[in-house]
Amino acid sequence: MGMTILHADDSSAVRRWVAAQFQHSGIQVVSAADGNAALQVLRESHCDLLLTDLEMPHLDGLQLAAAVRELPMYRFLPVLILSTRRPNEVEPERRLGVTGWIVKPTDPEHLRRWVRRSLPF
């Protein structure tokens, strides 16, 4: 069985770009337009990694990461932030529970490397 990434981003262009990076990799990408939609996906299906934008309406990426940690089956889910903001621009206590941080724009191979390194193979 292949791995599944849940990608949450309010930009449809970024969602399409991320999905394209894994199109032929055997990794399925499920997309959500915001943090609330991502939580709904997590409650209804299995995901192996969460890749999320930081700044989204309704529930930002760090609030989403915190909410994911409250779900028993996802306490240890790898969470990667994909954002134009750097981690040092965000308070350390808000970054708790985040596995890694990728700054946009990023090279496709850099993104794939982070994902492969973070997935629980």
Rank of each mutant, 00 (worst) to 15 (best):
M1Q: 00
M1P: 00
M1H: 04
G2R: 01
G2K: 02
T4V: 07
I5K: 06
H7L: 05
A8D: 06
A8G: 11
S11V: 03
S11Q: 10
S12W: 07
A13H: 11
R16F: 06
V18Y: 05
A20F: 03
F22S: 13
F22T: 03
F22E: 06
Q23P: 00
H24F: 08
S25D: 04
S25V: 00
I27H: 03
Q28M: 06
V29E: 14
V30H: 15
G35D: 11
A37N: 12
V41W: 04
L42S: 09
L42C: 12
R43T: 15
R43W: 14
R43S: 14
E44K: 08
H46A: 07
C47V: 14
D48I: 12
L50W: 01
E55V: 14
E55W: 03
M56F: 03
P57E: 03
D60R: 01
D60W: 02
D60M: 04
G61P: 02
Q63E: 13
Q63F: 02
A66R: 01
A66W: 03
A67Y: 10
R69E: 11
R69A: 15
L71A: 15
M73L: 08
Y74P: 08
R75D: 09
F76L: 08
L77I: 13
S83Q: 04
T84Y: 00
R85Q: 12
N88I: 07
V90Y: 03
V90T: 10
E91A: 15
E91Y: 02
E91V: 12
E93P: 03
L96Q: 02
G97K: 00
G97P: 01
V98S: 01
V98C: 00
T99V: 06
G100A: 11
W101H: 13
I102R: 07
V103T: 10
P105E: 03
R112F: 10
R113F: 14
R113T: 15
W114H: 15
W114K: 09
V115M: 06
R117Q: 14
L119H: 03
F121D: 14
F121P: 11
F121R: 15
